[in-house]
Design a protein around this nucleic acid. Structure first.
Ligand SMILES: [Mn+2]
Ligand SMILES: [Mn+2]
Ligand SMILES: [Zn+2]
Ligand SMILES: [Zn+2]
Lengths: 138, 138
DNA sequence: CACTTGACTTAGACATTGTCCATTGTAGGA
DNA sequence: TCCTACAATGGACAATGTCTAAGTCAAGTG
């Protein structure tokens, strides 16, 4: 994550202990934490960090394009550090586990003009749902 | 919507003024109202209907498969009476307008086994985003 | 290194969306 | 018409997210 911290510093970010900790928490593959989960993990490293700062920092990271906001469930937004390789999501309907996936083809091309209603279509999100191996076994 | 009411009566639903009004509100093409929007429209027809009843009734309609829950924005769930023809959604990123769309192809087939991580994949949701004609003009 | 300043953090109030429960009301059958 | 199980109600509560006023501090300046 020092890559991320370097980029942020280069963008004029003031480097604080709080921001460093949030950036550290958002590291890894298939990481899709809610704001409160980020806060809980950040508190473990920096007990006095506040909820508001976690929300603020996540919002800034999203604005900067360094983190994606994903809404695979109807409850809380999730924050995804894998912002550099476009991808979609596979979600377990039972336990909520989320994996990054890279489907073949281009779903944008599958939407004919007659189904665009004059919209300028620029983006598409695909969410696959099913049961993860553990939940399917149970 | 008397189709819907007939089906519901056939399923043993007790018919109340409240349920009738909620069913009436959920009629039409490209209808994707939030619970509070449904409540506001229901109140116009039946002033004493409560918020809890609207939530309860929507939940029941979803359980019965007569209405779909869609989460095209990160705020409130939306309720979609078009539950009988599978479809996806096209959303204006600026004003939130939502249209039902029917893309070509089968996105499930575009997810290779190597990208399924052992999941049993059963469903896929596709959300197209862009600007509606009005918002693109502005 | 000390100073300064505006950006950052904090705690908690507030807002929105949704759920739950005890009480009251009523649809529909006997 | 009466009964009763099911439904509606209002309000408390919960979860998630936003906002603000006041205090704090990173980092540039000299
Ligand atoms: Mn992801
Ligand atoms: Mn729809
Ligand atoms: Zn699972
Ligand atoms: Zn629009």
């Amino acid at each position: 994550m020092s890559d991320l911290l370097e980029r942020l510093r280069g963008r004029g970010w003031r480097m604080t202990a709080q921001r460093r900790v949030v950036a550290e928490v958002l590291d890894g593959e298939h990481v899709h934490l809610t704001a409160d989960e980020v806060h809980a993990r950040a508190v473990a490293k920096l007990p006095e960090i506040s909820r508001a700062t976690v929300y603020n920092t996540l919002g800034e990271l999203v604005s900067l394009g360094e983190v994606l906001e994903v809404t695979t469930d109807k409850r809380a937004k999730r924050y995804d550090p894998n912002a550099h390789r476009p991808h979609h999501h596979l979600v377990c309907a039972r336990c909520g586990a989320i994996r990054d996936v890279h489907p073949n083809g281009n779903p944008l091309a599958d939407l004919p003009d007659s189904e665009r209603f004059g919209f300028t279509v620029s983006d598409v999100e695909v969410t696959y749902r099913g049961l993860c191996p553990d939940c399917a076994a149970a």
